[in-house]
Nucleic acid binder design. Structure first.
Lengths: 329, 329
DNA sequence: CCGCTTCAGTGATACGGTTCAGTGAACCGC
DNA sequence: GCGGTTCACTGAACCGTATCACTGAAGCGG
């Protein structure tokens, strides 16, 4: 019962033009002002709307941008997805949002599917930035990487994790913390992720005693991991590589009857809006989500429109000190 | 440089069959086992993958489900969107997520665009369930409404708001609260939303002194609205129609130096995972997001596959008492 | 051995646009 | 007045699949 929609040929018949002329006219190409006007009038009259699918088949462009998130259980990534989706809508594009759930294998599969869907471009937060399929993918479709770098084959909004890690660890050390647990998102088996490398390097430089644990983003999983970190005689501070994970530490502390920052200090990495509402407020590294969203949208649209495909934007973090780190000095 | 993909005709040529036979074979239709095997082998050999766009044009089905959210600033709706997106992926569909930002006009426009995109079905959380375009839309594409009812023209996962409101208000009254502010999401100008009607009715029944204020979902906006509610001599409790809005009340209380629940009590409506982490924990109405997600995914896939289009699932809420409501008795 | 159904597969067309090469007319300078 | 452009538009092919109407052969009961 969906009443049949008008086609371009009907508009052509109504105006006495060829379908080709109508196609051009509707896109403001190659035709006289007057004809354009006539075509527009007829189109409105007939309630004509171009069929995006037919258009995509003929032109090879879908107007869609794939957004492949590392793990949407991370509230910060949710914010990112919402922002990007809105930003793209303003450029008359749709976002196809997919979630790799922290699994490199799924990430590969989804990236593939996104390409098969013929998205005009992709924004990804790589789970496994070292995976061998990235360069190949980047060649067949414009990719913008957020966070970790994709070996220079894509456009990038790169976090200066070196800076971020330094900011966090120096803050902790300045307040007298030396035994620190690091809770990092579950990742591919590649232990040499840039961020992790920086942690190790900085820990060494600052003379810190670090222990690295992994946790997936969900609150439950993060809480479970936090329990492991918060055993008696454990570290004086926990540095979480995502605010979402830090929330798990809050939950675990609650369950264990530990006070933050009395018994243990916590640092996050993101600055999600909720972080300021907790008690105590979460001290965290602010990655300026608005800036990231804007840059990613800008880069991907430019690349999808045939522009530069290898631009690089570096995000610099700032420290947001609230009350979750105790001064031991 | 995207190396040209194999088409169905090449597979046909390779197997010595007609393109039609290949098309059937790949979908497991109408052909002999043996041919099917041969076709599959050839397809793999050539790296053939069906083009979703051509397929959509020819068959009229895109495999996409539109998800039209009332306002993605609401963290609970974000969770919902993530859940639905995952659920649909398991059924080999894609979710096209759009955000009406609480604006009825935009909602109409986006619904239209979603239909033009030829989604196989839609899941919506109507901002303005009384808008006149819904019935018409429901006829041209299967729609599943979440939350408010769409006048029986769509399949529905309906919240029993009557129950939810009763639960909340009776809880507040039982603890001695009579002067209550209600913070409800910004809505269309229709003042007779079912949920709002229930609030009024229940307030009357319980002999409560209610004041209704509106707030949009963003933390900043909700905080601003909360400031209005928390003026001196104001209500003893604030009932928020979304946990996200309650978070705004927490923020406002922080800024004003008010204690929760010492100076003012707060109730939410959703039970977002973060609500248990606040101090004090937010007392709220639990809508069982998993159940809603599953029901919505089930209904929309069934409808998109040509099944029943008017099923109705009613969600019943439970009260989650934490520490944000003070006992005044 | 005949007529009827079933099965496996074919050819053609539809889906609704885009795009390329080409065409006639108008316009230009010389 | 003529060659060369530019302009506005046309016709036809094309994108890659699905689907409808058929066909020849095989299988069947009587």
């Amino acid at each position: 019962m969906p009443r049949k929609r008008a086609t371009i040929r009907e508009v052509a018949k109504a105006t006495g033009l060829s379908p080709a002329a109508v196609s051009y006219a509707l896109r403001g190409l190659q035709v006289s002002e007057e004809t354009m006007e006539r075509v527009r009038a007829a189109a409105t009259e007939l309630g004509y709307e171009a069929d995006p699918i037919a258009r995509a088949l003929a032109s090879g462009r879908t107007g869609m941008i794939g957004l492949l998130c590392g793990s949407l259980e991370d509230l910060w990534q949710q914010s990112l997805a919402v922002g990007i989706s809105r930003g793209l809508r303003e450029k008359d594009r749709y976002a196809l949002i997919l979630d790799a759930v922290g699994d490199p294998a799924r990430e590969r599969a989804l990236a593939q599917q996104l390409r098969d869907q013929r998205v005009d471009g992709m924004i990804v937060q790589p789970v496994d930035p070292a995976a061998p399929f990235w360069p190949e993918l980047c060649e067949s479709v414009p990719v913008v990487a957020i966070g970790d770098s994709l070996a220079g084959t894509a456009a990038e909004v790169v976090f200066d994790n070196r800076d971020g890690v330094t900011l966090a660890l120096e803050h902790l050390r300045a307040l007298g913390h030396h035994r620190i647990a690091v809770l990092t998102p579950t990742r591919a088996s590649t232990p040499d992720r840039p961020a992790d490398v920086h942690v190790t390097a900085e820990a060494e430089r600052l003379g810190l005693d670090m222990e690295v644990l992994t946790a997936s983003h969900g609150l439950a999983a993060a809480t479970e991991a936090a329990h492991r970190a918060l055993r008696p005689g454990g570290p004086t501070a926990v540095f979480c590589f995502a605010d979402s994970i830090a929330y798990g530490v809050y939950a675990a502390a609650q369950e264990l009857g530990l006070s933050i920052p009395g018994d243990v200090s916590v640092m996050g990495y993101d600055d999600h809006p909720m972080s300021g509402l907790l008690t105590p407020g979460l001290t965290t590294v602010d990655w300026n989500i608005d800036g990231i969203v804007k840059a990613a949208v800008r880069l991907v649209s430019a690349a999808a429109d045939g522009g530069a495909r290898r631009r690089r934007v570096v995000q610099r973090p700032t420290l947001k000190a609230r009350g979750s780190v105790r001064d031991l000095t």
